[in-house]
Simulated assay, not measured.
Amino acid sequence: MMDFHCHLDLYPGAREVYREAARRNEFTWLVTTSPKAFAATSSALEPLPSVLITPGLHPEIAQERAAELDLLLEQIARVKAVGEVGLDGSPRFKVHYEVQRRIFGAVIARSAELGGRTLSVHSRCAVRDVLAELKRHPNFGTVVMHWFSGSLAELKAAAAHGCWFSIGPAMFESANGRALAAAMPRDRVVPESDGPFAKVAGKPIMPWNAIRTAEGLGPLWGLSNDEAAETLARNGCTLLRTMDRG
């Protein structure tokens, strides 16, 4: 199993969950919410070959952590992937949207300057602006749209731009989420948990619950659960090769 977007450091009993994810999963992408969180998490958790820890600056806390941007740009030079970064244009966070845009623009420009990175990108109510920033820096690398929630037209535009999509069990809880998942390019979808924030039946999704993503996708794609799981595994291996090249 694989998990391409997980806040492993934020689970209760994080060290135990971290070790269990490393034991159960072939690969887990631990995204952090700020440059200082990345530094602290990297120091606190023992390096394990199946877990990738990456620096990020979550758009929901852009205003609070804007002073850490220079640190993030330094960290990006030492890693092959970045996350979580992006834009959030929802009403609660739109008040600091210009700060978000400045940070995200700098991250994409830095990634392009360094020859490309794989980025886990948050795009709630901001897909068009995310894509516009990517177009300004065509050598940015590869973007994985985390828990995509835009329109079908925006999904088509993101797919045309070469974006990947990471989706988890919580996405199938809504009709819109199911419709988006059904329309995603099947060769560019990988599993995620987004735990501990994402929940099903009130319980956080665990990093080793990728099989639930396959179970959600199977009926939408007209595949058996096993076939959907095989597709996700194949896609995951392809994306990992892309990340290694970056």
Rank of each mutant, 00 (worst) to 15 (best):
Y18F: 11
E20Y: 05
A22G: 15
A22K: 06
A22S: 13
E26Q: 14
E26C: 07
F27Y: 14
W29E: 02
W29M: 09
L30V: 10
L30W: 02
T32H: 03
T33Q: 13
P35N: 08
K36H: 10
A37H: 12
A37W: 10
F38L: 03
A39E: 15
A39I: 14
S43A: 15
S43E: 14
E46S: 12
E46L: 08
L48K: 11
S50N: 15
T54N: 02
T54Y: 02
G56Q: 05
I61V: 14
A62F: 02
A66W: 03
A67G: 15
A67M: 07
L69D: 08
L71F: 04
L71I: 09
L72H: 00
E74L: 06
Q75T: 11
I76V: 13
A77L: 07
R78H: 12
R78G: 11
V79Y: 11
V79Q: 09
K80M: 06
A81G: 08
A81V: 03
G83V: 05
F93C: 02
K94Y: 10
H96M: 04
Y97N: 03
E98K: 10
V99W: 05
R101T: 13
R102E: 15
R102I: 09
R102N: 13
I103M: 05
I103V: 14
I103N: 00
A112S: 14
G115L: 04
R117G: 06
